Simulated scan of single mutants.
Amino acid sequence: NTATHGVLLTGKKRESHADEDEDDDKWKPLTEAGIQVYVIPDSHVFAIMSRVNKVILATHTVLANGSLVAAAGAHMIAMAAKEHQT
């Protein structure tokens, strides 16, 4: 769900319900660069990771020791990527 994804990344609930065009606009820079984008629920990460060739995680903060503060679910995505050597 893109609304949930937005809350997890920003911590803010969207004021108005966006139509499909606005949801597509957030991925426009990637799709214009020829990158296919699929939004999936966290529960499907391990199932599709074998078909993924690159994982990009947004982080909120990078700490001095190199660790990250990221959205909920990022650890599971990282574990799946490591398991599939992605």
Rank of each mutant, 00 (worst) to 15 (best):
D21H: 07
E22P: 01
E22Y: 09
E22I: 10
E22W: 07
D23T: 02
D23A: 14
D24K: 15
D24N: 13
D24F: 06
D25K: 14
W27Q: 12
P29D: 05
L30C: 14
L30P: 07
T31N: 13
T31M: 03
E32C: 15
A33C: 09
A33E: 04
I35D: 02
Q36V: 07
I40R: 03
D42G: 04
D42S: 10
S43C: 08
S43R: 12
S43L: 08
S43I: 13
H44W: 07
F46D: 04
F46M: 02
I48N: 00
M49F: 00
M49T: 00
S50R: 09
S50T: 13
R51G: 12
R51K: 14
R51F: 11
L57I: 07
A58S: 12
T59R: 06
V62D: 07
L63A: 06
L63S: 12
N65Q: 03
N65D: 02
G66D: 08
L68C: 14
L68Q: 05
L68R: 09
L68M: 09
L68I: 08
V69W: 04
A70Y: 02
A70R: 02
A71P: 15
A72G: 05
A72E: 12
H75Q: 11
H75L: 15
M76H: 10
M76C: 10
I77N: 00
M79R: 07
M79D: 08
A81N: 06
